[in-house]
Design a binder for these strands. Sequence first.
DNA 1: CCACGGTGGTAGA
DNA 2: TCTACCACCGTGG
Length: 170
Amino acid sequence: MKRQAQSIARLPIETKEGIFFASYSQDGLCRLEFPKSTKPSNTPETKQVPGTIQGWHELTTKAVMALLAGAACSRVPPLDLTSGTEFQQQVWRGMQKIDLGQTSSYAELAAAIGKPKATRAVGGACGANPIPLLVPCHRVVASHHRLGGFSGGLHWKRLLLDREQCNVFA
DNA sequence: CCACGGTGGTAGA
DNA sequence: TCTACCACCGTGG
């Protein structure tokens, strides 16, 4: 069963690394996009959005800034992960338990949700993660100190782990 | 069904 | 070390 989690607002987050975009449903943050190009020029005008969402967006913005700086974020907005399948949501919830500066592996994560043989499927779920950074899919690496892949581009995974001081790679 | 992954483990070179 | 191969499992066509 998969849903679509309709977004009612899509707001920009300007950072040193480019412009992220955050989408919100009525239940919270439902999507976070990596910057496409480093310089897509001006921001597409912020329309009027409900106060609740403005509050969430502030939290999201701070969280993204903090994580890019390798710092922990104290508060995060509510996350709407209902767009995923049951399995995917289990994986995503499991990822949220990985602390800053820590890493886990696809196998560990699979075992953590009681499906030790679903390692490869976990990889798929990571790739389907709608909210990278806040749901730290970049902290999931392969076995034997190998980096593994990353949908948003491996350079992001490297950058994030580097900022978080995870010198686990060779 | 079938094919495809952000895997993991084994076997050889 | 690196390559080749294969078992696994959830997802989408």
